[in-house]
């Protein structure tokens, strides 16, 4: 089950570039929240700050308070602890090329030393079912390499991999941008189903996608969050002129 995320005064830098400027935001639990904005506006950096992936880049740093439930993830826990509770799906599918489908899905557990085979089997099946991939791969789970699947299947496998660790939050960084329309709609259906179980934050450059899957939407521009509201409001009666310009296609 998901937890809410409370972001206060989040700032982030790449080298000397100030990519996120004083972000304040409340992301409700068990809902999907979409982040939209033109490329380079900081929305990807923002989700990477939510599981401390941002700091894996040696020149990057972040300050501020990010509370996941009651835990300040920058103060009370190590990055590894946080990432175990937060699943992440990246822009391009990134299966482990040396591992079978089964091992890919189980990797979050196996690489952390979990060895109970019965639970692993059950988790792999449950996660693949949740990612709507089970029927397509159940016959060669251990025979086929994760890299042998199609792009859309790979991405669903990556979602299954993120779900297998039973996370509280699921971060998705443009999960469908590298996929064809059919795969994209499968991923969207999936998000729509998963959001009852997990707090989902999805970055997208596709406004229709945001409108289809998310209850709340935030609009980012030049490292600042311009507006955050229910998706309905953002798309029908935005309060900020820049949001209106963006969603009506006047720029971006």
């Amino acid at each position: 089950m998901g937890v809410g995320i409370n972001v206060e005064h989040l700032n982030a830098w790449y080298g000397t570039t100030h990519t996120l400027q004083d972000i304040n935001l409340n992301i409700p639990a068990n809902h999907a929240t979409a982040l939209i904005g033109p490329s380079g506006c900081g929305k990807s950096t923002f989700v990477r700050c939510l599981n401390r992936m941002h700091e894996t880049n040696p020149i990057a740093r972040a300050t501020g308070v990010v509370k996941m439930g009651e835990v300040d993830i920058y103060k009370d826990a190590s990055p590894v602890d946080i990432r175990r509770r937060v699943g992440m799906v990246f822009q391009r599918p990134n299966p482990f090329p040396t591992m079978s489908i089964y091992d890919n899905v189980a990797s979050g557990l196996k690489l952390n030393g979990f060895r109970n085979k019965a639970i692993l089997d059950e988790t792999v099946e449950r996660s693949l079912k949740a990612a709507a991939l089970w029927e397509e791969v159940k016959d060669d789970l251990k025979k086929k390499s994760g890299a042998s699947l199609s792009g859309g299947q790979q991405q669903r496998m990556c979602i299954a991999r993120a779900l297998a660790v039973d996370p509280e939050v699921l971060l998705m960084d443009e999960p469908a941008s590298a996929l064809d329309p059919v795969s994209t709609s499968k991923i969207e259906d999936l998000i729509f189903q998963l959001k009852s179980q997990y707090t989902i934050v999805i970055v997208t450059h596709n406004m229709q996608q945001a409108a289809r899957v998310a209850e709340n939407t935030g609009f980012f521009l030049n490292g600042k969050m311009v507006e955050f509201n229910s998706t309905d409001k953002i798309f029908t009666t935005p309060s900020d002129k820049r949001t209106e310009d963006y969603i009506t296609g006047r720029f971006g």
Binding site: V80, R84, F90, N94, G108, A162, V165
Partner: peptide, 9 residues
């Protein structure tokens, strides 16, 4: 990144 994102040390 995939591995780190799963909380693997």
């Amino acid at each position: 990144e995939a591995a780190l994102g799963l909380g693997v040390p």
